[in-house]
Design a protein around this nucleic acid. Structure first.
Lengths: 345, 345
DNA sequence: CGCATGAATGTGACCGGTCACACAAGGCGC
DNA sequence: GCGCCTTGTGTGACCGGTCACATTCATGCG
C-alpha cells in the first residue's frame, strides 16, 4: 500500500499533523502517550500515522531531547569468545530497551588511539560500556571523561567496592577456587597455574582463588606461569612446565590457553588425564568437543553483558527497571581432561 | 586546562563564534575547510575551538545534513569466528573513514522480528551491512526497503552477477575445490562432504566446488551429509558416516563441524589421519592447536568485512575512495588431520 | 452566576548544525 | 568613474523533533 514509486522523504510529524487536521504538537503527544488527548483525536492521528507510514526520526529525537538511546561498546577485540558473548548480552538487553548499540574497537593500547576512540564513543551521545580485560580496555575506561555514563566490564576487583560502582564482573576468585579444589580432590599434590595477563593487578582474582584453595589444602604453591591470551601462549608455557615431571595438574587462565597446553602435552607425549590433568576457564563452545574434552569453569558472559547494560540503563534513565541483574555464578564443568594423578612408581 | 568543575554543556559553534568574534557560519566554514576564509580569521576561530574544546555535535550534523556517517551491521550471531571477524573488518574500515558502527542481532529468523530489526537499522540513517549466511540474515537482506544503501555479505552466488552488485563473498567454490583436490591427491578414492546449511540454495558453492573436484578426478560422488553449524552437528554426521568403513576422507563445511567430526572419530576409535582424513573451512584460531591439528582452507573474513564497507562507502559518498578492495583468495592450510588413506588390507 | 480549575489543543522558541542567499569590500577592465 | 566579478562574511530559514507557555472550552463549586 502507498507505494508511490520514488523514494521520497519520510513523513514528519507535521505531515501527519496536516493529514489528521491537528497541530504537530498533538501528534507529538499521541506518539508519546500523553494522557490529555481526546480519544477521537488520538484515533485520527494514529490513522494518519499508519497511512503515511510515519516513523519518528531518531536523529531529530536525539537532538531535541538530548537523550540518544544509544550504548557504545568499547572493546579490544570482537572475535574472542568471551568478548563476543558479552557484546551479545549487551545487544540483547539493549534491543529489549530499544537502545541502539554502537561498537568501537580499541585496536591499539596507545594512549592517543584509545583517547580518540573514547571521544568517538562520547560523541555518540548515550552510554558507554568498556570491556576492560586488557590494557587497551583499562586505559579506555580511565580515559572516559568524568560525568559520562559508563560501565566497565572488569576483572574481579581485589575487594568488593562499596555501594554503587559502575562495574560488573564475574566471580573469578570463586571459579578458580572451585577448579583448583576439584583437581586437588582428585589426589593431585598441587596444581600449577598458567595465568592470562591481568590487566590491572599484580595478582588477579583467578590467581588468588587458586592460591587460596592450595593453602586450604596445605598444598605447595608453585610459582604461577605468566602467559598470553591465546593457545600459543599456553603451548609455550606447557612446554616449559612439563620439563618438570612432578607436574600433574595444570589450571589454565582460559580455555584457549588450555587448548595450547593440551597440544603441548600431546607433543611431548604426556597422556591427559593419565599423566597430567588440565582445566580451563570460560567453557568456550569448542571445549566440550576437544579430545580430551576439557574440564573448565563456565562463566556467564552473556549475563555479564546484560548486567552491564542494566547498570547503564539505570544510570541513564530514572525510570529504568532497577531489576536485579544476576550474573550466574561460575559452574565447574568436569570433563575428560581431569582425572587422578598417576599412581606412584 | 579549562576544567571548571561542573559538567557543563559542550560548546556549540555559536559559542565558538562569539569567542572568536565572528558569525557561527564562519565557524562552520572553518570546520568544513571552506576555502574563502581569511587566514587570520581562520586562526582566530581555530584558537577559540581549541580553547573551548569544541567538538562538532554528531547528532546535529546528522539532522542538518542528512548524512549520518553510520553503518549498521545486521547479523544473526556475534560469537562465531567468521561472523565476528567480518564485523571486525567492517569496524576497522569504518573507523578509518570516521563512520560509526552499529550492530543489530537477528535473534530470530521470524519475519516480524527480522523486519523490526531492519527497521531499527534503517532508523539509524546510514548504510546497512547484512551478514546473510543464514536464514535470518537472508530474510533481513530481502527485507531492506529498496533505496536504502545496503551491502550483503553472502554465500558465493551460483553465477557471478554482472556489473555492480551490492554483495561481497569469498570464493567458496575455489576453496572447496582446493581442499577436495588435496585430499584426492593423497590417494583417497573419494571425499565425503558434511555440509553446513546453505541459506539460499539447494547446492552451495562449497558443495559444487567439492563436486567439481570429484568429477575431474573421476571419483565417485557420495551424497553430501546435511548438517548444522556447530560441532554437535559434525559429531552426529560423522557417527553416521563412519558406519561405512570405506569412508576415508571427510571434508567439513567449517572448522566447527570438523571439530565435532574429529571428536566422533576419536570416540569410535578411528585414527586421524591414519584411517580417516579430515579437512575443514575457515581456519579458525583454534584449528592449528587441535590434536590432530586441522587441515583447512583459510578464508579472509576480515578482508571480506573491509570489502563490504568499501562497497557501502562508495554507495554512500560520491567522493569515497573507489579503491579496489580485494578479498584474499582462499588458501589451503595443510596440517596433521589429512594424510594418505590406509593401505589396502 | 462568576470564577477558578483542568482537559485539550495550538504557538513559538530551541537543540546545533547546514544551506541558500544577501551583502560589503577590493581588484580589474574599459 | 562605473560596472562586474571575486572574496570574505553575515543573516535567515530549515532539518524534525521537544519543551514551555498560551489559549480555548467545558466543568465544578461557592
Amino acid at each position: 500500500m502507498n507505494v508511490t514509486g520514488h523514494t521520497r522523504r519520510p513523513a514528519s510529524i507535521r505531515d501527519v499533523a496536516t493529514a489528521a487536521g491537528v497541530s504537530y504538537q498533538t501528534v507529538s503527544r499521541v506518539i508519546n502517550g500523553h494522557p490529555s488527548v481526546r480519544p477521537a483525536t488520538r484515533e485520527r492521528v494514529l490513522a494518519a500515522i499508519e497511512e503515511l507510514g510515519f516513523r519518528r526520526n531518531a536523529t531529530a529525537l536525539a537532538l531535541a531531547s538530548g537523550r540518544t538511546r544509544t550504548v557504545t561498546v568499547l572493546t579490544a577485540n570482537t572475535t574472542h569468545y568471551g568478548y563476543a558473548s558479552i557484546l551479545q548480552g549487551i545487544e540483547e538487553s539493549a534491543r529489549a530497551a530499544s537502545y541502539a548499540v554502537g561498537i568501537g574497537v580499541l585496536e591499539s593500547a596507545e594512549d592517543a588511539a584509545v583517547a580518540a576512540e573514547v571521544q568517538r564513543a562520547a560523541d555518540a551521545g548515550g552510554g558507554i560500556v568498556v570491556i576492560a580485560y586488557d590494557p587497551a580496555g583499562v586505559r579506555a575506561l580511565d580515559a572516559v571523561p568524568a560525568g559520562l555514563p559508563v560501565v566497565g566490564v572488569v576483572e574481579t576487583p581485589a575487594s568488593p567496592p562499596g555501594g554503587e560502582s559502575p562495574w560488573v564482573w564475574t566471580d573469578d576468585r570463586e571459579a578458580a577456587y572451585q577448579a583448583t579444589r576439584h583437581l586437588l580432590s582428585l589426589g593431585h599434590e598441587t596444581v600449577h597455574y598458567v595465568a592470562i595477563p591481568s590487566s590491572t593487578r599484580r595478582t588477579s582474582a583467578r590467581t588468588s582463588g587458586w592460591r587460596q584453595a592450595l593453602k586450604e589444602a596445605g598444598a605447595p604453591e608453585p610459582r604461577p606461569v605468566q602467559s598470553s591470551w591465546g593457545p600459543a601462549g599456553g603451548h609455550a608455557a606447557a612446554l616449559e612446565l612439563t620439563r618438570d615431571p612432578s607436574v600433574t595438574a595444570i589450571l589454565c587462565g582460559n580455555d584457549d590457553l588450555a587448548l595450547g597446553v593440551l597440544r603441548a602435552l600431546h607433543e611431548t607425549g604426556r597422556a591427559v588425564p593419565g599423566e597430567v590433568s588440565v582445566a580451563g576457564f570460560d567453557d568456550a563452545p569448542h571445549s566440550a568437543f576437544l579430545t580430551p574434552s576439557l574440564t573448565t569453569v563456565r562463566l556467564d558472559f552473556t549475563g555479564l553483558g546484560r548486567a552491564a547494560f542494566a547498570l547503564l540503563h539505570g544510570a541513564l534513565e530514572e525510570s529504568a527497571p532497577v531489576a536485579p541483574h544476576p550474573v550466574s555464578v561460575p559452574e565447574l564443568v568436569v570433563r575428560e581432561s581431569s582425572g587422578p594423578p598417576p599412581s606412584g612408581p
